[in-house]
Design a protein around this nucleic acid. Structure first.
Lengths: 219, 219
DNA sequence: TGACGAAAGTTAGCACCTCTCACATATGTT
DNA sequence: AACATATGTGAGAGGTGCTAACTTTCGTCA
C-alpha cells in the first residue's frame, strides 16, 4: 500500500499509527525534495520541460531513486499538483479571512488570491489545470478541486445570506469562478496586453463580484 | 496538379492550408499530414503524450523526415496551434455572422463557438492556450490570438455602437472573453459537475453578454 | 535535352529519458 | 542477532529528439 500522500494532516489518522511526521531513512524525505525540485523545474522550463532524471540529479540521488517514491512520471506531477492545490486553497481561505464575512470584499479577495497564485507560479498553475491523465485515476485531486470551489461557494453563500447548497449560490459561484479562472489564464498567457498591463485586479474583481452577486444576474 | 487530396482525414477540419501548399514533391504534402497526425495524437494521448516519431510513423515516413519540414518538436506543436487558431477564429466569425450585427445574440454566438471548440477538441484547445515556449518566438501566433480577440471586440463594438478602439469596448470585450475562456476550461476539465451538466451554454452566454454589455458594468 | 542544384526522403547514430531488475545498505521489530 | 522492509545504487532495454551524410526526385535553364 505505502501511504503516499500523507502530508501534514491535522486530523487524527486512525489507520496508520506509525508514520506520523515524515519518511527520513537514508536521504531525509526525498519525496518532498523531489516534489520541490519538480515544481521548480516546471516553473522554469515549462510543464513538459522537466525530467525525472533532472529532478533526481538536483536532489542528489540516482535517476532510479524517484521510482521508489513514485510509480510514474505522471504520479510525480500529480504530487506537485496536489501540493500546489493545498497552497492554492490555503491562499483562497486566507484571502476570505482577511475581510469580514458576508462581504463583497471577502468574495473579491478569494478571486484575488486565485489570480495572484496564477501570476506567482504560472507554470505550476498551468500544470494544475492542464493535467489530463492525472485526473482520471486521482480522486484526491478532484476532491481538492472541489474543495477550492467550496471556498468560493462559502464566500458567496455568506455574502448572499443563503445556504451553500442553494443552486443559485452554486450557479453564481461557478460564474464567478469561471471569470476568475479565465482572467488568470489570460493574464499568464499574456494573450492580450490588457490582461497584464491595464487592469487593476482588485477593481476588476470587485466589479465582477458585484455584478455576479446582484439580483439581476439571476434573471 | 493540385495537391488537394484529402488523404485520410474525414473528420472536422475543412480546407485550411496552413502555409505554402508548395510541399508536394515526394510524399504529397507531408507537412499537413504530420500536423493532422499530431493533432490527432494530442487529442487522444494528451498534449505531452505525443512524439514526433509516432507522428512520422502514422504518416508513413521515417522518423527523421519531419525535420525536413519542422525545425523542432515545439515547431510542430506551433504548427498545430496555428492551424487550430485559424479554425477557431473562423468558427467565431461564423457564429457572429449567423446573427444580425449589433445584436446581443451575435456576441453570445461568438462565445458559444469558443466553448464548442473547446468541448470538441479539448486536447488541442488546451495545447493552444498551454503553449509557453512557442509564444516567445512566434509573433504569428500572438497575432492570431489578437485576431481572435478582435472578433470579440468587433461584436461588442457593434453591439454598443462604439468604435472597436474605444477603451470601454476593449474592457468589456476582455471581461467577456475571460468569462468564456474560464468557462471553456472548467468545462473540459470537468472541475465541477455544474460545468458539464447543469449549464445551458446559450442561456449562460446570453446572460453573461447582457451583464457585461449593460451600462452598469462600466461603473 | 541533359546537367545541375535544391527539395524531400532514407539510414545510422549519439545523447538523453523513462522505467525495470538485481543488488547493496540502512532501519525498526522481535 | 536476525529478519523483513524501506530506501538507495548501477546496469541496461527500449523509446525519443535531433543531426549528419547519403540517395532519390523534381524543376530549371544553358
Amino acid at each position: 500500500m505505502s501511504p503516499d500522500q500523507d502530508a501534514d494532516d491535522p486530523s487524527a489518522p486512525p489507520a496508520t499509527p506509525t508514520v506520523t511526521p515524515k519518511a527520513a531513512y537514508h536521504h531525509g524525505d526525498l519525496r518532498a525534495q523531489l516534489i520541490a525540485a519538480v515544481r521548480e523545474l516546471v516553473e522554469t522550463h515549462g510543464p513538459d520541460g522537466f525530467s525525472v532524471a533532472e529532478a533526481a540529479r538536483r536532489a542528489g540521488v540516482s535517476s532510479a531513486a524517484p521510482y521508489k517514491h513514485f510509480k510514474d512520471r505522471p504520479e510525480i506531477l500529480r504530487g506537485v499538483v496536489s501540493e500546489a492545490m493545498d497552497r492554492l486553497r490555503a491562499a483562497m481561505e486566507a484571502g476570505a479571512a482577511a475581510h469580514p464575512r458576508a462581504s463583497l470584499e471577502a468574495v473579491a479577495a478569494v478571486g484575488l488570491a486565485y489570480v495572484e497564485f496564477a501570476r506567482g507560479e504560472p507554470g505550476v498553475f498551468r500544470l494544475v489545470f492542464g493535467l489530463t491523465e492525472g485526473h482520471e485515476n486521482a480522486p484526491d485531486l478532484l476532491a481538492k478541486g472541489e474543495g477550492c470551489f467550496g471556498v468560493v461557494v462559502q464566500a458567496v453563500a455568506a455574502c448572499l445570506g443563503l445556504l451553500p447548497g442553494d443552486p443559485d449560490v452554486q450557479r453564481r459561484a461557478y460564474m464567478l469562478w469561471s471569470f476568475v479562472h479565465g482572467h488568470s489564464f489570460l493574464t499568464i498567457d499574456m494573450k492580450h496586453k490588457v490582461a497584464s498591463a491595464e487592469i487593476d485586479d482588485w477593481d476588476y474583481l470587485m466589479r465582477i463580484s458585484r455584478a455576479m452577486l446582484a439580483p439581476a444576474a439571476q434573471a
